[in-house]
Design a binder for these strands. Structure first.
Lengths: 191, 191
DNA sequence: TGGTTCACTGAACGGTGTTCAGTATGTTTG
DNA sequence: CAAACATACTGAACACCGTTCAGTGAACCA
């Protein structure tokens, strides 16, 4: 039943966004009464959280294979590409995971476990880079934040349609993301 | 009257966010009935839009003086600092302007005029940088996107509380932003 | 057969954005 | 001065929302 609800919720959440999606919509889709959903989830946020986790599971699944790329900087570049790719192809999951406000209210910070794991992948690869002589003298915390931010910035502008600012130039979002990433990596390679 | 409504709306919007803020709240604050607000604004989105514009007005007001910094790369750095500063000190305006989803639905893209102006400030300073030999061979559109994204990324993670991922390390958001910016500028200087 | 448990319902509560017939206060005109 | 019109505002109503909970019916066990 939980799975049935989550499946419908996923469709509706991702199609309409957190606030436009309603418990009644979800109930209608699975042909149950709204009350039923509350037998399986304490509140709307809890459904959100379950999807949040699924997003991170997918995300980590795509990241994990890259741990086998041995050259650290190559690994870092590959991880970045996968990150951007994940956002492009799972716009709504990305939004849910990194932009939406809804769930963080309730101080459920312990549930960010998977987020920390993803961040650790990044920090690890940066440490490995340092072992090969890159990023000398840089603080891993600050550096990881800088890199994460640069990628997140592009993805967030994309997800929230701020790339339209470039539309009149005939530039399509995918192009922007690809070139933006390329430029950033070039900068990163020189630091 | 419009001003009275906007003033109350600003307080409530910025305190509660777009979706938590209600027309009834605003009406209550100014001691009028909810219906009255609809005599001055077609819908909730229109109030949002008015605030959106005020945000950009403030933003541009802080940017404008920097046009007098003559050395282009110094001007770029100063603009970046002002951008980050604006986001830190006007978190809610920043959210409204660059993250919230609400208003963009209605294809009111012509109203992004001020956004374009801000973006042009960035592109102009980049062209000036190129004239002094920096950023050779780089496309202004892509480069401006890369830079905007890097700053936006930090601000967006800050606004939507994703910096908490660093909290257990005793790192405060302001620190992260400052060092993240510093690192990014260092990278930019080398490209 | 009676009692208990379980899954589910749907009306109800207090909230939301939005509309609109109605009111009450000027202002203008005959 | 009175009648006609204009303006400013109200607040009940509509259709939605998340959430709760008394009640229903079927399944199981004694």
């Amino acid at each position: 039943m939980r799975a049935l609800i989550l499946d419908a919720a996923k469709k509706i959440f991702l199609a309409k966004g957190y606030y436009q999606a309603s418990i009644r919509n979800i109930a209608e889709m699975i042909e149950y009464s709204p009350g039923t959903i509350y037998l399986y989830f304490k509140e709307k946020d809890e459904i959100f959280h379950a999807l949040h986790e699924e997003g991170f599971r997918r995300f980590l699944t795509q990241m994990q294979p890259l741990q086998h790329v041995s050259e650290p900087f190559e690994r870092l570049k590959a991880m970045g590409r996968v990150y951007m790719d994940f956002a492009s192809k799972n716009k709504d999951f990305y939004d849910l995971m990194f932009i939406m406000q809804a769930p963080m209210n309730h101080e459920k910070e312990e549930e960010w476990e998977m987020g920390h794991q993803a961040l650790n992948y990044l920090k690890d690869v940066l440490r490995d880079c340092q072992a090969t002589g890159r990023f000398q003298g840089k603080d891993i915390e600050y550096l990881s934040f800088t890199i994460w931010s640069a990628l997140h910035g592009m993805c967030a502008l994309y997800c929230r349609e701020r790339c339209h600012a470039y539309h009149d130039k005939g530039l399509e979002a995918g192009d922007l993301m690809a070139h933006g990433y390329e430029y950033f990596i070039e900068m990163l390679a020189k630091v």
